[in-house]
Design a protein around this nucleic acid. Structure first.
Length: 111
DNA sequence: TTGCTGACCGACG
DNA sequence: CCGTCGGCCAGCA
């Protein structure tokens, strides 16, 4: 892998690789990049994804609890939840029920 | 340019 | 159990 890309670019690369109907956590992506403490940057990268022309499935990235913490940044509505629901993800009260089942760990799946 | 903030996470008291 | 703090990096006033 090339390390010349910025942190954000690396985050996008991983997020774009998330399979349909699967989700991952900020910490998992951060850990895959080598810095689990940089989970905040992953979330910030999602915010920056608005500026990028590429399609970033940010709705497939949630926090460690499987909670849709970033839904408020997703158009200000339940768009994030709707997208996940359309992918077969079970959600209740902004939380992914089968999080353990659909969790996609880049460190394991991608490698 | 400096400094604050942010869609997180883990540790500590 | 719950509140607080540090760490990581980039964007913005």
């Amino acid at each position: 892998m090339e390390n010349n890309d910025s942190f954000f670019q690396r985050v996008f690369e991983v997020v774009k690789l998330i399979p349909y109907g699967r989700v991952t956590s900020y910490g998992a992506v951060a850990a895959f990049l080598g810095s689990r403490s940089s989970a905040r940057m992953v979330g910030w990268a999602m915010n920056a994804s608005h500026s990028y022309h590429e399609n970033i499935p940010a709705h497939r990235v949630v926090n460690r609890n499987g909670l849709l913490t970033g839904k408020r940044h997703f158009g200000g509505s339940d768009v994030m939840m709707e997208l996940l629901l359309s992918e077969g993800v079970q959600i209740e009260n902004d939380k992914i029920l089968n999080f353990d089942q659909i969790f996609w760990d880049p460190a394991k799946e991608l490698l």
